[in-house]
Amino acid sequence: MLELRGVSRSFDGKPAVAGLDLDIPAGRTTALLGPSGCGKSTVLRLLIGLLEPDSGQVRFDGAAVRAGDAPEQIAQRRRMGYVIQDGGLFPHLDARGNMALLARHLGWEAARVEERVAALCELTHFPVDGLERFPGQLSGGQRQRVSLMRALMLDPDVLLLDEPLGALDPMIRSELQEDLRRVFAALGKTVVLVTHDIGEAGYLAEEIVLMRAGQIVQRGSLEALVRRPEAPFVSEFVKAQRSPLESLAAGEGEA
């Protein structure tokens, strides 16, 4: 579905992604996991064509993905939904306006737009009376729901999420995690999720790609990463994120 072949990309001489090969299978959720600066967000931005690789190739359904505004690139982007931290909602448009922006631009009829908006509200558990609110009037969790709905508006083949829950407090975060998992399962789309939280990655994704310094360190399920680390960095990363609750629970089990 999505593939990177020998892709490198530097910023001001510093390589963010170096000679990366990656295949993202269709219909599954893949998490790109790693510490800040490991290149995971760069991969996502290369996938949707916000960045051009310095070398190598990015492909979507076999066609090259490139940055720029050529018609074929624009058409490609419309087949992908993109959600970023804190939503990236346009402050001058209300929730409905944000969701319907592209559909209206493409000339959808009002009834069709409304039908789709209603269906998405139901899917994401977003209250219909919130549609008239502006992003500044919505809570962080609601903003992410609107952002997700906006990404899903044209029923894209691929959904790309960059730290979608990064700015939320823990309660809302866990609630939204559950909703996301349900939505991914219901839609069965190809999903690529960027996160630095191993728990979130394990909860939402079938497969995790652990990255470090622009390279893939290990790829597999959460269980594989925890039980069969292929490099010392994997164990360190897993250990660093073990929560105090887990060790407490582990301690109780031993007693």
């Binding site: 949707i48 982007r77 909602l89």
Partner: peptide, 9 residues
Amino acid sequence: ESAAALGLE
């Protein structure tokens, strides 16, 4: 970037 990623010309 959000606007570009959305697929607006």
